[in-house]
Design a protein around this nucleic acid. Structure first.
Lengths: 177, 177, 177, 177
DNA sequence: GATGAATGAGTGTTCATTCAT
DNA sequence: GATGAATGAACACTCATTCAT
């Protein structure tokens, strides 16, 4: 249905800008449909939120398959894309923050897999610290997103820079603290 | 009053565990008091939330004054304390995340000042990258908190390690990305 | 919607009988709808109260336009209608009592205008004391309403009679007290 | 107890200015006592309100006994005092308005009696219309109070003037309407 | 399929009243 | 007697969800 897409788009923008607190009625109104229509397509608010997230996650997974140069570059490129897609996007940021893969959502699992594959390859090829796990990477991504979202607009990039430097293989790794 | 402390404690735990979404009635019940009692001590939910945060923030500011060795060590020690205090604490994490100092709350402003002083000293003494601002540090702290909160329990520390490494003066600073 | 009218009717009766203190939930229950439905049609209790009043006021203004005999008779006929409509009606009585026109409500302003026009004409035609102002008339109307509401049922009319006699041009006007 | 008088005074002013809606806690605070103290002296808010009213009513009844010239003058003088005491006094105004004597309150009954005696004498002496009852007078007083309270400050007196003219024996009485 | 009116449980807040100190 | 902290019922209002049209 065309309405489904319209609702999904509106929800994406609304949730991105204002968080999941936005009333469904507001989304319905912004999408130019009735609240009942929203529920026809998305029986529950949670379902709608999940759909919005899944949409972005699948979009990202898609991108992961379009890489293919150097494993290390691929990994960091993907990480950058993930972080940037969650920048200025409240739902995505909190979706990455809270329970990537843990929620059992199919798209979430796929993203974890895509990430895992790239990460394993990068680690094998020696471009990434070998004392961090795939799970750790999820956490670091969360952190990078949080940093980016808090940074002044003209300072953007610092969060990514630090995260990437922190994951990249270097002599100083693990020597701090 | 003894009840004020009881309510504040209960609120601290409730907000830490479940976020600020916890109904005041629930907090009242958990504290073993009536809903009216909560309002007597904290006229508004916002006031209670602010009180919980202020309590922790002032605790931190207190710690800042007890340092006094090497400026750089002091700064990173304080940063570590701040991040650790927000670990497993949803309100504190989001308080650090959203608008440190921007909210005009006295305790928030004091924390910003404490941070700023230590940061300036550390930067002057050459222990911290000189291309980052105090504002940047707030963002990086947010990120470290997010990372720590997402990390498996036995992996804790990685977020801090990366943040600290990212802020510490090093030859590679600014060379990435 | 049919429900809007049902709610307005119920509110009119409830407010008339028991005053504006009646809980919205009670009105909802009496109207056979949920509390949310009341809020859908009248976002705020003040809006509902205003709607009830506006409904009566506009009804009165309507009547004012249907007159057209002798200016003096018209004025007193209208005054009588206004007072009688507020008889046994707590909201209307207090709406007339407190701030006719001062509240900025459109219907209130219209009623003031209707009253003012009739009053001016009556005064010009010599049927009304020329030492009273339009504002005075509002106060006298308030008084007549109060009197009528306090009067035993079989004595009704005395308040109006006194008010009308007091406003009508007579030799004794202003000689008392 | 001295506190009782302090509370009563404070309540009188508070209720006069803001109506009976004023919270007891506010009155307690203004009186410089705890809320519990208010309840010790006045078990219920209704009791306090009644006490405030009784205090004024008894004050008025007192005045009634100090008259003694011409019956008609006495009656209208008393009526004037009653109306003026309720001017700018929200509780008193509504106490006069709603149920003088009907509430069974002793002071209310006494006021009714005082009024009744003066009224009967005035009527007997031929100074007051003989087609109105004592009950009617209560209603007219209500009206005069309402009018006075609505009148602009520099127009005060009109309500009383009209009420008195309306009750006084005159050739036009009963000829209107 | 779409609509949007209706639902009703839930939330923050107020305030008369009680009672331990 | 006085205090003021505590109580809890009550209220206005929100919003996810349902359902008649």
């Amino acid at each position: 249905m065309r309405n489904r897409a319209k609702i999904l788009d509106t929800a994406r923008e609304s949730f991105a800008r204002d968080g999941v607190g936005v009333p469904l009625d507001t989304i319905a109104e912004r999408a130019g449909v009735g609240p009942g229509t929203v529920h026809r397509h998305f029986p529950t608010k949670a379902v709608l939120v999940a759909a919005v997230i899944a949409d972005r996650f699948d979009h990202l997974v898609q991108r992961a398959t379009q890489l293919g140069e150097d494993p290390t570059d691929d990994f960091f490129t993907f990480l950058t894309e993930v972080v940037e897609s969650a920048r200025d996007n409240l739902v995505l940021a909190s979706a990455l923050d809270g329970g990537l893969g843990r929620d059992g959502e199919a798209s979430s699992v796929r993203l974890v897999e895509a990430f895992g594959t790239l990460f394993a390859a990068a680690q094998r090829s020696g471009g990434v610290r070998d004392d961090v796990t795939a799970e750790d990477v999820h956490a670091v991504v969360s952190g990078a997103v949080a940093t980016e979202n808090r940074l002044a607009v003209d300072r953007r990039g610092l969060g990514l820079e630090i995260a990437i430097a922190g994951l990249r293989l270097s002599k100083m790794s693990g020597s701090q603290r």
